[in-house]
Simulated scan of single mutants.
Amino acid sequence: MLSKVLSKNSCAACKFCCSFRRKSLWETPLFPHEIAEKLSHENEYGMVGEFRMSQTVQGVRFDRLVLENNYRTDDPEEEVPCTFLDPQKGCILKGDDKPFDCSIWPLRIMDRNGELVIALTPTCPSIGSTPGENLVELVKSGLGEKIYEYAKTHPYIIKEYHEGFPIIEIGSL
């Protein structure tokens, strides 16, 4: 979705969005239970993930990928990659198996005191901490609308707003 502002090559080389420090586990994407169930057993990708029930929204269950057991040290800065990240190829998940959060990263839809906003994750090495003109135009020319529409039926993707995330667009459900 972001190929107009991020090349697949730069994302595949970076992989920053697919690694998590302990303090950023809140950003680990949620998977619909059916997908988590599929990925927690032998599957077409040859990788098996461990999932934990995270929440139920409007009667639909969503699970979070468990990464806490993969840390090897007590260093709070240690990063652990997503189970489905291939070091050479990038994300191995296809189509509907890939979380929407991953498809729109470094964008986030966030709740800022009851107001929905689309914000930039300021730590993306490829985009930087300030949304450029092209990214703002991409959001305003249709991507933002797609994100809000998806959030209507998948409210679990809405994260709590964190200070320092530059807001690109303010919308509503």
Results as ranks from 00 to 15, higher is better:
Cys124Pro: 02
Pro131Cys: 03
Lys98Cys: 14
Pro125His: 07
Ile109Thr: 02
Pro106Leu: 11
Gly128Lys: 12
Glu145Leu: 06
Thr130Asn: 06
Ile127Asn: 01
Pro131Val: 03
Ser103Gly: 10
Gly95His: 13
Pro106Asp: 13
Tyr156Arg: 02
Asn134Arg: 15
Lys152Asp: 01
Gly132His: 10
Pro125Val: 05
Gly128Ser: 03
Lys152Trp: 01
Leu107Ile: 03
Cys124Phe: 07
Val139Thr: 07
Ser126Gln: 04
Leu143Asn: 14
Lys140Phe: 13
Leu143Ser: 13
Tyr148His: 06
Leu138Phe: 04
Ile157Trp: 04
Glu137Thr: 15
Cys124Val: 03
Pro125Ile: 03
Glu149Thr: 12
Arg108Thr: 02
Thr123Lys: 15
Gly132Val: 11
Leu135Trp: 03
Lys140Pro: 05
Ile147Gln: 02
Ser141Trp: 10
Thr121Trp: 09
Val117Arg: 15
Pro99Glu: 11
Tyr156Cys: 02
Pro125Asp: 01
Glu133Phe: 07
Gly128Cys: 04
Gly142Gln: 11
Thr153Met: 05
Ser103Phe: 01
Lys94Arg: 10
Asp96Trp: 07
Asp96Met: 14
Glu145Lys: 15
Ala119Tyr: 01
Met110Glu: 12
Arg108Ala: 06
Ile158Phe: 01
Leu107Lys: 07
Thr121Tyr: 11
Leu135Arg: 07
Trp105Met: 15
His154Met: 07
Gly144Met: 07
Ile147His: 06
His154Lys: 08
Asp101Lys: 00
Glu149Gln: 14
Leu143Trp: 12
Leu116Glu: 00
Pro155Thr: 04
Cys102Met: 09
Gly144Ser: 04
Ile157Val: 15
Cys102Leu: 13
Ile104Asp: 05
Pro106Cys: 11
Gly114Asn: 05
Leu107Arg: 03
Phe100Lys: 05
Tyr148Lys: 06
Thr153Leu: 10
Leu138Gly: 07
Leu93Met: 05
Asp111Glu: 04
Pro125Gly: 08
Ser103Met: 13
Ala151Gly: 05
Val139Lys: 12
Ser141Tyr: 09
Leu93Trp: 10
Lys146Met: 12
